[in-house]
């Protein structure tokens, strides 16, 4: 059993992350984009959708590194701002 786990881990580490790394990143980004939209409202930007975004909240999984990642991704905010303009 242990050997099986070890082999599984070995292959994930050597090949899996290389193969799926981009996919994983995109998946995570897509989840976080929804929460960012929501947080923008709480940051003071009127968001006409925010009441309905609230109902999405329970379905998103967020850890404490979330804000750090958002801040680190400087290019994400301009993208969201430009989208927001279309909604206003």
């Amino acid at each position: 059993m242990e050997i099986k786990e070890w082999i599984k881990g070995f292959f994930k580490g050597t090949f899996g992350d290389i193969l799926f790394g981009d996919l994983e990143r995109e998946t995570k980004e897509r989840e976080e984009i929804l929460l960012t939209l929501l947080l923008l409202h709480f940051a003071g930007l009127e968001n006409p959708l925010y009441f309905y975004l609230l109902e999405v909240l329970p379905y998103l999984k967020i850890d404490e590194n979330f804000m750090r990642r958002i801040i680190a991704k400087e290019e994400l905010l301009p993208v969201l701002f430009s989208r927001y303009e279309g909604w206003a």
Binding site: L54, L57, P58, L60, I62, E64, F66, M67
Partner: peptide, 28 residues
């Protein structure tokens, strides 16, 4: 409605983020 959302959200958020977020839900 909001307290229902709060209850469900508590499970999926890290406690630190949730504590930060709670005042905003109260406000809403």
């Amino acid at each position: 409605y909001i307290s229902g959302i709060e209850e469900k959200t508590r499970r999926n958020f890290s406690p630190i983020v949730f504590e930060d977020f709670k005042p905003f839900l109260n406000f809403s």
